[in-house]
Design a protein around this nucleic acid. Structure first.
Lengths: 350, 350
DNA sequence: CTGTTAGCGCTTTCAC
DNA sequence: GTGAAAGCGCTAACAG
């Protein structure tokens, strides 16, 4: 005994396939087919255009959550950064977004703040959201297990920060070569006494840069002044601190300094300026990343190009390949020296 | 006649409530309650701890998509930017993420590239995703209707870019006052001949900054040199172009220049440098935003602080209030002059 | 305190 | 070419 239909419990918020089906006098599944580009050919043309007309008129909008529950895919890629305030991550997000947006996919963003437990919680949460894939730019050495465990469940790509001793798919950048380029550049300018400002050791980029630099330096007769410790974070404040410590040792200062990233280089510049040491007259300074603005500093900063935008794009493409079951062809993006005004030839009196 | 159970069609990927229920010998809904903090008290303690034990042992992870379909909420906030490569948006994302991440919410990011149709498509897509709210930092004048139409469906907050003639909830920043501060600063340094480098007119921030500046300038006996057009985008390249055009007019150049944002100021600096015009010796230069690095330029850039981080955070809080059905108390964030080395008192010979 | 039942909106066999 | 029926995993009435 059919009663009058009662209003559904949840406030009706949108048009559903059922609404269209009723209006068009067909079955919901027919509407589903007519509206799905890959199935539309199974529906007679007349029915199809009629259905589409009704859908447009009613302002139908597919319910991606419902579809996701059915299909198991959410058209969503997790992007996990350590610190969103680092200007180095923005271009990665930018590249990633561009690479996946065309496929209707979008990144969901979270930030670990370089805390392991937060990281673990975020990975877990992303899995609960059933993201289709993850791009991780937050890896530190201690995070390997949680990352590999997540990667067993969903395609996961490392970008921006590599991970020592892991075989996870990643967008590879040759940090070691970057370090070599920095040393080679200083060597070519005649510098002999050099020093590095080290980024944190558990972020794999930095030890690699350090190794490349040291190897080239020692192989070319340069003297590398032992560094006064290591940055806790790769920030300007830490670069400033390290540079101060170096100057405070009282030993003869280096004529060439390689800071492991641009932010640290900026901090170092401040420390040098405060001591009356001029760049590049007294000290040549090399950074890493080529952040958007460093070319406009006075003097403009010599740096190693890190192709962030391309890294983000490559990560997106990699994820999409992985989703399509394709072979993972690991992308490989080379560093490049950008010589600018913060380095100059060592003169006789320098 | 019970046959042997066949494998479910879709590859089993995770533990479900049903698995736990079977294992624990209770009904799925009891499991649901036991695991939901707000319902757990309705379950006997013994049952509850047992259920939780089983859940932990099995590695249960709630299926947020399924939950979302049932509850109508996705724990997701859309963030729509015009251009993710503008360093001005990162802090907004950062602040937003921080403000909502504690509630288990995360931003999904998309980029309009300042294209109206792309914008419309993105809004539509976000609605299809059933995001719980939207934070929009991409509004241009022509986007009003699509924004208001989206706002009728889901809580929507404007941040970063206001919208003329709209009553959408927004994080308010007083751009007009910012313009006044710039003019007042130049006036206090004795500058009389001034000019503006205008950002695009359909991004509401810029006309407001312009109006504030002009009003204060004319009210204080300054002569504002007519600008050579307007930037198509608020970028360094456009700032450079405008500054070149201004210098190329051949008329006596201004001694004080207000660029509508820092990027344009940087471009202007390059144009000035190329002509041998020194900052601040010949021209005092004021920007807007206080981007992370501009304080470290030589000379450091005088600018108006735009509190991006707080804007992002406030937008997140506003959205959460809106979701909770609270009154919208519009946040209000003031500009602030940051006087640095790119401006200096006008000397007799200047 | 727990089980039953229904259903969120969609896709997807399987029939006809 | 279209309809029927089932079910993705969960929550939320309603009983008892």
């Amino acid at each position: 005994m059919a009663e009058e239909t009662t209003r559904p419990p949840a406030a009706r918020v949108g048009i559903t396939l059922l609404d269209i089906a009723k209006e068009a006098g067909v079955h919901p599944s027919t509407v589903s087919r007519a509206l799905d580009p890959s199935q539309a050919h199974r529906v007679r043309e007349a029915t199809r255009t009629q259905i589409r007309g009704v859908a447009d008129r009613l302002g139908y909008r597919p319910h991606l959550v419902a579809r996701g529950l059915q299909t198991g895919r959410t058209a969503t890629i997790a992007f996990v950064a350590a610190d969103l305030s680092n200007p180095f991550v923005t271009p990665i997000i930018h590249g990633l977004t561009g690479a996946i947006q065309n496929d209707g996919m979008m990144p969901v963003i979270a930030e670990t703040q370089d805390d392991h437990d937060t990281f673990a919680a975020i990975l877990d949460h992303m899995l609960s959201r059933r993201v289709d894939g993850m791009v991780v730019a937050a890896a530190r050495l201690g995070d390997r297990e949680i990352l590999e465990s997540a990667a067993r469940i969903v395609p996961l790509v490392l970008a921006g920060r590599p991970l020592e001793g892991s075989s996870l798919p990643q967008v590879v950048h040759d940090d070691r070569l970057g370090g070599e380029l920095a040393a080679a550049h200083l060597a070519s300018l005649g510098h002999r006494r050099v020093a590095q400002l080290h980024g944190p050791a558990d972020v794999a980029n930095f030890p690699r840069r350090a190794a490349g630099f040291s190897q080239h330096a020692s192989g070319n007769g340069m003297v590398e002044i032992a560094s006064p410790g290591m940055a806790n974070n790769p920030t300007a404040a830490e670069g400033e601190r390290l540079m101060e410590d170096l100057l405070a040792t009282g030993m003869e200062p280096p004529t060439g300094v390689f800071a492991h990233n641009d932010l640290m280089a900026l901090g170092a510049r401040s420390a040098l300026g405060a001591r009356g040491v001029r760049v590049p007259d007294d000290v040549s300074l090399v950074g890493y990343n080529n952040l958007p603005l460093v070319g406009r500093l006075t003097p403009p900063l010599t740096t190693i190009l890190y192709p962030s935008l391309e890294v983000g794009r490559a990560a997106g493409e990699l994820i999409i390949e992985l989703l399509g079951g394709e072979m993972v062809k690991t992308h490989d993006l080379e560093p490049e020296l950008i010589a600018r005004g913060s380095t100059r030839p060592l003169t006789a009196d320098g």
